[in-house]
Design a protein around this nucleic acid. Structure first.
Lengths: 194, 194
DNA sequence: AGGACTCTTGAATGAACATTCAAGTATATC
DNA sequence: GATATACTTGAATGTTCATTCAAGAGTCCT
């Protein structure tokens, strides 16, 4: 026996950054071997293929986003203020000048469309899971009497989710923090009671 | 002298469809020659490169969208009803099962990020032009006393634009017509007077 | 210490890619 | 109809790509 010499999390972290920076197609194996420090053979041994590595990197990204979401929406805090923070964090990501400005899930979903149904399905499922969690939080806000619209919580969650997707694409045309903050405020207002 | 044997508009139309279906990177010259009926040499003679062909195909797409926009927002009609129709048309595109479901501009913008600043700039400029036209229409609606929020027309136009971008990405996760129509209604409500 | 097992290495492989160009072909002008 | 001037053709080019694999090296067990 002999255990693998590399730290799987660290490799996935680097691969994730490479895919975020270059997209799926343009993240060549050469870039991936440089970023991860692994040789081609090791990547194929550990992940099977470039696609396999991508799928694990996506899952790694998704896991991180889920954890951040759960940390943000802790039970002892108003849902609306957590939501406001979620949008503020998204804006902060969008105005970065690093690969952190992109959402690996939404960017890859746009790229992969019509190419690989298996990857598209994985991305969609991951995004829907976050949307679903958001729906639960909005339902909680309604139960707790926060000043939120009495529409179906899932409809409100979808609307916010769509808004975040839209902001991410919008930021590629104009990564102006003030504009993105104004959009966040408009989104929040749209789901509040008035 | 001898005039070109192919119809430039027809070639751009076919190239546009190929880029919409496969994205920029995966639309290989082989697929492009098959779709357009042109041989590689002819494409390079007429458009310089794959990138040159893409840029012209994007401009062709943009031109079409601008014409459709102007036809929709004719002067003798309430802006809000044209806007409603614009969103309904977008939903119809999103639920198609053909390449017509994607917006070449937003999809390419997501794909190209961090790869080719020249193309990114072109896409952003084209998208901003439509956003700007929408802003003018919203200003007109305000002047004509339609039941629309009295926020800055550009801010409202940005919000709708963002919403459309969001719906397009959302549709990749769940192309349900009812859901997309509900989102459209939520977007419209958010910019109306209340 | 020796042998068995497994992981690592990185050059080699073949496919797919964008691009070029010399030969071929059609048109226009005189 | 001859010549010049384009446009068309598609095989060839060189590059880049994902992937493989045989040789090498490390680790564990007896």
């Amino acid at each position: 026996m002999r255990s693998a010499e590399f730290d799987r999390s660290h490799v996935l972290e680097q691969a994730m950054h490479t895919f975020m920076e270059h997209g799926y197609a343009k993240a060549s194996m050469q870039k991936l071997t440089q970023a991860t420090g692994l040789h081609p053979g090791s990547i194929y041994c550990a992940f099977g293929s470039k696609k396999g590595l991508f799928i694990e990197a996506v899952s790694y990204y998704h896991q991180q986003k889920l954890l951040a979401f759960e940390a943000l929406f802790s039970d002892d805090q108003a849902v609306l203020s957590s939501l406001k923070q979620l949008l503020a964090n998204t804006v902060q990501e969008c105005v970065q000048n690093t690969c952190a400005k992109v959402c690996l899930l939404t960017r890859s979903l746009n790229e992969i469309e019509g190419q690989d149904p298996e990857i598209a399905q994985l991305l969609a499922t991951n995004l829907q899971q976050i949307e679903h969690s958001l729906g639960e939080q909005i339902a909680r806000a309604q139960r707790q009497g926060e000043a939120i619209s009495d529409e179906a919580p899932l409809a409100l969650a979808r609307f916010i989710t769509m808004g975040i997707y839209g902001m991410r694409t919008y930021a590629f045309t104009n990564a102006d923090q003030n504009i993105l903050e104004q959009m966040s405020a408009q989104l929040l207002r749209a789901i509040q009671k008035h």
